[in-house]
Nucleic acid binder design. Structure first.
Lengths: 225, 225
DNA sequence: CTATGGAAAACTGCATGCACTTTTATCATG
DNA sequence: CATGATAAAAGTGCATGCAGTTTTCCATAG
């Protein structure tokens, strides 16, 4: 019974997958700082497994771009330096623009209704003013846009890029006034999509991300050095 | 000396990396067919290593999206089903469009000259009519576009998507007339970029990929079943 | 007090082995 | 002849161990 340790009940997947998720979370949530070393032995101890699954997890995280790896050297949390950060936000803006543009013409009735309903409901979150709650809604809003494009690969690219940007976008909703601004920007996107105005939707989404980018780079500069 | 076996001289990287490249090549070049099982023991024997590095390579290939993996089951060469194939080509077209659009305004003088020079030189390849040679040039042409956007993340997304599509684009240059058509399409893109006409460059690149998509899906249908 | 050399400690890369799961082959039964 | 049970074979998941590389640390020279 040494090597059976189903932590939770359901489809948590294999040990390695759990670790990938756990480590990715730690990186994305900022618990692990860029540049930090991820040595196999410590991680093995931490997760109470041997080095073999740790190595596989690191390999996968490397392929995901979250950690850097070179031969005979410890894996390190990837430093997303200023330049690349800007590149990622720009790419994100383009991707969101595409998704919104496609969503405008491709979303079916249910998707449109859901989008509108949830968006309206989010007004309450704005007045409540709890950044964490709004952040959670915001993620779902954007995912809805990605899915609405009805293109699995775009969904994958957008999700992946968003995950990598997460640590740098983390605190943006704490900035005063950002919450209601965000709502207004969402509103422009939603309205355009409901009108099936592809161009307007694309532009609105692009601008929305660009603004977030500006808000976040300040934060990144403070935090990343 | 059981475990030292530097195959070639230079920076081939670690054993695992070599294997990743080798297996990816086999998949991408069609030597391994979608659905084919990749069992660890056979691969280990084939590459004359133990199962450990094989497992890591498969893990990475899984993250790259080239092979499918589920617990306690052999990895299999991923079948890119019709639907997702279309999605990937569409995403590729969007990405190329963005890269070309950005290239039009961002390429520096050297990059523009190189683009023009290589493009002109490729005319010889067209008349020579060797599909393999033109395919190699073509890859470089597109990479030039991705790099010209001066955005590392877009470069990464485009490269990644292109790699996954490679198997389905493989035989397209064998289609009669495709070579010179490709050259003409490239010409439109190059001309627009040299004029710094972002919109035209974007559209031309988008159309170029869309055409390749049409040419390739036929092939994919035949090949993938 | 800073630079340098080198040995020890720490860590990675890979091989091997065992437990558990899936697949395949065998065979009895309707 | 098909069918379902079941045991053997094949294969995956992970632990452990050893060889080789990198990092750390401390003594010694400048």
């Amino acid at each position: 019974m040494t090597q059976a340790k189903r932590k939770t009940v359901t489809r948590t997947g294999t040990t390695v997958e759990q670790m990938v998720r756990a480590i990715a979370d730690m990186i994305v949530s900022g618990i692990m700082v860029p540049g930090e070393r991820l040595d196999e032995l410590s991680l093995a101890a931490r997760f109470e497994v041997s080095r073999t699954p740790v190595r596989e997890a690191l390999r996968e995280l490397g392929a995901m771009g979250l950690v850097g790896r070179e031969p005979n050297r410890s894996a390190i949390v990837k430093t997303v330096e200023e330049a690349h950060l800007h590149a990622m936000f720009e790419a994100m803006a383009e991707l969101e623009g595409i998704c919104a543009r496609l969503s405008a013409t491709r979303m079916d009735a249910d998707e449109r209704h859901a989008l509108e309903r949830e968006h309206r409901a989010s007004m309450q979150l704005v007045s409540a003013g709890v950044p964490e709650d709004y952040a959670a809604y915001n993620t779902e809003f954007h995912n809805r846009l990605y899915r609405g494009a009805h293109n699995d690969h775009l969904l994958e690219l957008a999700t992946q890029t968003r995950a990598r940007l997460a640590p740098f976008r983390h605190a943006q909703f704490r900035l005063s006034g950002r919450l209601s601004k965000s709502y207004e920007e969402h509103d422009r996107i939603v309205t355009a999509i409901l009108r099936a105005d592809a161009t307007a939707a694309g532009t609105a989404a692009y601008d929305h991300v660009s603004i977030v980018s500006d808000a976040s780079t300040v934060f990144a500069a403070v935090r990343g050095g």
